[in-house]
Design a protein around this nucleic acid. Structure first.
Lengths: 226, 226
DNA sequence: ACCTGAACACCGTTCAAGT
DNA sequence: ACCTGAACACCGTTCAAGT
């Protein structure tokens, strides 16, 4: 009780660093300052340690970012309720992925730059593949549908967070795009502009997701459609 | 004939740098070495100049990257043949976007990191919006469909180029993913694994694109479907 | 075993000074 | 007008040496 019982009895001073706390501190720093400000030196500073010390726990910065992505994906690896329709369950998973990426500043950028194969990432993919295969899709179609949902969600959230970034800076989307479109001869873009410059990205996400789900529904009705 | 006739008569030595040549050299360097190796110093070296000289033509490195993205998008801004079906024309545009991003190493990463509002980018978006509005979609639906296609293509190409990157390194997708999936209890993922580890990404892209198009087709038949 | 200190080889960006 | 030279304030990563 008096001394913490870890699997390996700690001889000497307890370490001031460990993988778990480092990942958590890194995610907190990410939220506070963004990906560009997340340096090994700043992270080390936040943990009261020199930069070199981090390399006992992560071989490279990329490994740390991968671990952060994996931690984020744990939130997306939810099991959708069993009673629902396959399309609803798939939509729940896609929304969970978007929310997991949105939960941390530049989350989509972190995820896009890494290739985690941890239980969070694989658990999410397994859940998607399960919903699709249980719905009757062939293995190859389930795999491709999974990729389509992930890629759409990734691209969407990347742009959503990019639009959020500047915080009142110069290359902000809304006005710059409006100006550029209204100047030249872009009649169709002008017509769509109110939609394209909406601040709330949730309807855009739901629209794209509904498109993918509807596409899957037609494929399920007629697997030889093409 | 003997002296080049530019709009502004060149007094003194002709400049060794200009925006156009710098962008072209930067894209060539990108193809040769990748985005991580594309530094202002290396680019300057490739142009026989000191790094600081670049800042007379681009305010920041981000501005240069935006100009590179815009140049890449010029290739995607093709006008699909007028006789074809709206869904075919939209597909042609989506494929042109993917090809434009694939045409340069890390092209998707460059595009994702910037927000170009030049004629290439806007021309592409205008073409997509035009196809959709001419097909009868409401302005808001056309805008959202355009975003869905772009976001899916961006996410897809990002992953496609990420899988291409290492060139025989450590975090390559095919074997690492196979190992991770086969180790644990991922029955559905195991079933989909042959598809997920395919080297050719074109079928994945076509599948996702077909899903979006099929979803749009159902929406067009019944606009009040939801 | 764990961390420090200091170095190595870089970055983006700025700006006086030269031509 | 255009570019150099040199600096400023950083990076990721390595590694002997301390404790």
């Amino acid at each position: 009780m008096s001394t913490p019982s870890t699997s390996r009895p700690a001889r000497g001073r307890p370490p001031r660093l460990d993988q778990g706390r480092t990942i958590e501190t890194a995610l907190a720093l990410l939220n506070d300052s963004g990906l560009d400000a997340l340096t090994m030196r700043r992270l080390a500073g936040a943990m009261g340690v020199q930069a070199g010390a981090l390399y006992r726990y992560f071989e490279t910065k990329d490994d740390l970012l991968t671990a952060m992505a994996e931690r984020m994906m744990a939130d997306a690896s939810v099991a959708p309720e069993g009673g629902a329709d396959w399309s609803d369950r798939l939509s729940v998973l896609a929304r969970a992925l978007r929310q997991a990426l949105l939960a941390h500043r530049d989350g989509a950028r972190v995820f896009a730059g890494t290739h985690s194969t941890g239980p969070g990432t694989l658990g999410f993919a397994e859940a998607c593949a399960g919903v699709l295969r249980d719905a009757g899709f062939a293995d190859a179609d389930a795999g491709r549908a999974l990729m389509a949902v992930v890629h759409f969600t990734l691209g969407h959230t990347l742009e959503e967070q990019a639009a959020l970034r500047p915080g009142g800076g110069s290359p902000a989307d809304p006005d710059v795009l409006r100006e550029a479109v209204s100047s030249g001869g872009y009649p169709h873009l002008t017509a769509a502009l109110p939609t394209l410059t909406e601040a709330d990205y949730a309807p855009h996400f739901e629209f794209g997701l509904a498109l993918l789900v509807a596409g899957l529904e037609t494929l399920r009705r007629d697997p030889h459609h093409r």
